[in-house]
Design a binder for these strands. Structure first.
Lengths: 229, 229
DNA sequence: ACCTGAACACCGTTCAAGT
DNA sequence: ACCTGAACACCGTTCAAGT
């Protein structure tokens, strides 16, 4: 939409002068995804963003997968690791919330991370740090192993919810109420829930952050109890 | 690979005689995805599967999204709903395991479900049944609401793990041991875990089903405790 | 009524050729 | 050494045309 063939000379020369590099390509790819979502990240558009033809990217990356692996790495590296001074539970909780901040800045990231086949160095480094926290907190290897599985992708700060009831799904409170009334016969229990979780309902509007922390704490409490055994 | 232009006359006429219908298209789409993964499901291949050009599909579906919504519906409908006679915890546990059986038969389904923007009738029906179980088991609306969020996509029987340490990721025990040794310096805590979770290690090979049920039970226990409050 | 041919606007990727 | 032009094999989708 905003695309144009006209580029000022300074921009064009500045971009063509700086040679392509992995870092420059990955930064451009992250920017592109941040602005237009992951579907905006095509080899052709990425090339255009860098003032270069798409084919030039293949000099630095074997294929698009390598670029996707690369941008996951870039943003996971943004997560600051815990210094390990606090109690394991406080520490891990803080760590996950920190990771969540980063993911909220890059809404495309969870899906890309889950779709990636291989685990890159940044995630390994992150998980290694989490394992250090658990082991340091007295977890057996077995329980630590379970812990990482129970937390699943939540460990990186995102929750794969079945529906987004906060953002788009409930554009108008009025529309939601209408939907709820229409559902009432077919899905009475969901209708009850929808009404309660609507803006005026008893529960108030559903807050993703609150739900995320509720789930995280429930799991951490469960792990604490097992650790004590 | 197995594709061919030669079709026996009986097959060809049988397929062209039966007119296209939503059901026939969706069944073919599910079969295609079951056999070749979700990337094998293109409009062109789907048409070919049905002995028809891709464009003919647009008579029955507005676009490909509608087909994806459709196949999710088809397989979620395969999940048998609980009759609600047991205790809530037994009931819900059984329900989730039942859903998991279905998902394991359609390995492409979790990703497609999570990528879908809207929640279709089959999932609504499923969630309505889960809500019935929770409410019948004495859960307040608020706690039931939390419960559905904590369970997340696990409620449908799948766990979005960060890595598949069971299938492809560990092709050879020997290779895994080598990798572990190579990681030892950089990621000592992960190396320790990898060794323990390898075939010969203390934990034995990692079993996805075991981990799934461990996580499910931890969450159900946590919910039970909160319910008692 | 139901399907097709031809076309459009996109993809990722390869490779010989240009500077 | 680094990038491009042209091409290939795919996508989803539209629309006038065929039967």
């Amino acid at each position: 939409v905003a695309g144009t063939d006209v580029v000022t000379e300074t921009e064009a020369s500045a971009e063509s002068r700086t040679p392509l590099s992995r870092e420059r390509v990955l930064q451009a790819a992250v920017d592109l995804a941040d602005r237009g979502g992951i579907e905006a990240l095509s080899m052709r558009k990425l090339g255009q963003e860098l003032g270069v033809e798409a084919m030039a990217l293949y000099r630095h990356f074997r294929d698009k997968n390598e670029i996707l692996d690369g941008i996951v790495n870039v943003i996971v590296k943004e997560i600051e690791l815990s210094d390990g001074t606090a109690d394991w539970k406080v520490d891990l909780r803080r760590q996950v919330i920190t990771a969540r901040q980063v993911m909220l800045r890059h809404p495309w990231a969870p899906r890309v991370i889950e779709d990636r086949a291989t685990v890159g160095p940044a995630i390994l480094r992150y998980l290694n740090s989490v394992m250090a926290t658990l082991r340091g907190g007295g977890f057996s290897i077995g329980l630590a192993h379970h812990a990482i599985h129970v937390l699943g992708s939540r460990i990186l700060g995102f929750n794969q919810d079945l529906f987004d009831d906060s953002d788009d799904a409930t554009p108008e409170p009025e529309a939601a109420a209408n939907l709820a009334r229409a559902m009432a016969e077919q899905y009475p229990h969901l209708a009850e829930l929808a009404i309660a979780a609507s803006h005026d309902g008893r529960l108030g509007p559903c807050d993703d952050d609150v739900e995320f922390e509720f789930g995280l704490d429930l799991i951490l409490d469960g792990l604490e109890r097992l650790r004590a055994t």
